[in-house]
Simulated scan of single mutants.
Amino acid sequence: MQTTGDVQQQVDALYAQAEVAGQRYDGAREQERALLRRAVLLQQHIAEEQQQVNTLAATVGSLASAEYRQGGGMDPLMQLMFNADPQDYLERATHADQADASAALSLQDLRGIQRRLTQDRAEALTQLSALELLQQTIAGSKAEAQRRLGAAQALLGSLNDQQRATIQQAESDAAGAAAQAAGEALPPDQGPASDRAAAALAAARGELGKPYVYGATGPGAFDCSGLMYWSWHHAGVSLPRTSQGQAYAGQRIPLSRARPGDLVIYYGDMHHVGMYAGNGMVIHAPYPGARVRYERVDDMPVAAVVRPA
């Protein structure tokens, strides 16, 4: 029979795996939103270019037909299309006959817009393929996170009432001790490094007790990077959405020089993040089923400390 400690260790590992999948989900969703915005703008551009093509094609056709009827010669549109040196034809047409020049110049514009239209349509197809791959990543990451969370809940469900109460009490005691330590007064030189950091810290503190929900950025719930995104947004700073992105969102500093408001990135793959709160504590959204709380900064392996600009 597994001990409470064995189950807790396995549950912690499953929560970590779920969070990795959750951060992958967050990152893919962020990319999806950016790609959709670009796709909308590109489609608008394509529609405008198509309208220009239609207008210029009608203009070129009218000019070329009129010139052909008047002169009986080769349609200038055809002359330009078959000319080995279109620029030479344009120069001669400009001096020879204004109608020829107008048709030629309109055709030159038409060709340029058609090239851009072809390029933009190819780019739109590329974006569509990228979007389909992103949506597969989103679906896969969500399903993986749900599998890991389900396995963790099943393990916890295998405990008896007394064992579950023991785990909950241990977490409650640890959270209470961390909150008490974090609430101790800080020396002036160990406070937030800037007014923005102070504002971000105040925002994070205001969310203590809110539940962890992966993919959430508030106000009712948060995942780890969502809490950092929310808090620094209230300080006027736009952070990347994921913990991996946030790991490169400012100046890297040693943990020994951490100040309240700094981001503390955890684990080698940087799948978790918290906010340094002073006195060796962080505020973070730990894992599903838990709530935003204080914890000792070194309770997890620190990968980096980042001070947002």
Rank of each mutant, 00 (worst) to 15 (best):
R257K: 08
Q251Y: 02
T3R: 06
P254M: 03
R252W: 06
P187K: 09
A66S: 08
P286Y: 07
A21R: 01
A39I: 01
R293C: 14
Y266K: 00
R205I: 04
Y89S: 13
L134M: 01
S256G: 13
V292Y: 08
Q162I: 14
M228V: 05
A197H: 15
G191K: 14
G72M: 03
L105P: 02
L125Y: 06
L155R: 05
Q163W: 10
E19W: 04
N54C: 06
A139N: 00
A185H: 10
G280D: 00
A154Q: 12
L117G: 08
D223T: 01
R148Q: 15
Y287D: 13
V20S: 08
V237C: 10
Q9P: 10
A247V: 10
T94Q: 12
A216Q: 03
V7T: 07
G61Q: 00
F82S: 01
G268H: 15
R92N: 09
Y266S: 00
D262M: 05
A57Q: 04
Q10A: 15
R24S: 06
A99K: 09
E30V: 07
I265Y: 01
G209I: 06
D6I: 13
L128F: 12
R196H: 09
Y15N: 11
W232S: 07
D97N: 15
T4S: 09
M300G: 07
Q114L: 03
Q119E: 08
Y248C: 02
V20P: 02
Q52V: 14
R92P: 08
L263T: 10
P211F: 12
L36K: 11
A130G: 06
L208G: 07
R293P: 12
Q169V: 10
M275L: 11
A13M: 08
V302Q: 05
H284S: 08
N279E: 00
D120H: 02
M78E: 09
T118G: 11
D6C: 11
L14D: 06
Y248I: 05
G150E: 08
G27A: 02
S225R: 06
T118P: 07
A235M: 04
Y266N: 00
A249G: 10
G274C: 03
P308Q: 14
P260I: 02
I167K: 10
Q180I: 14
Q2C: 09
L41V: 12
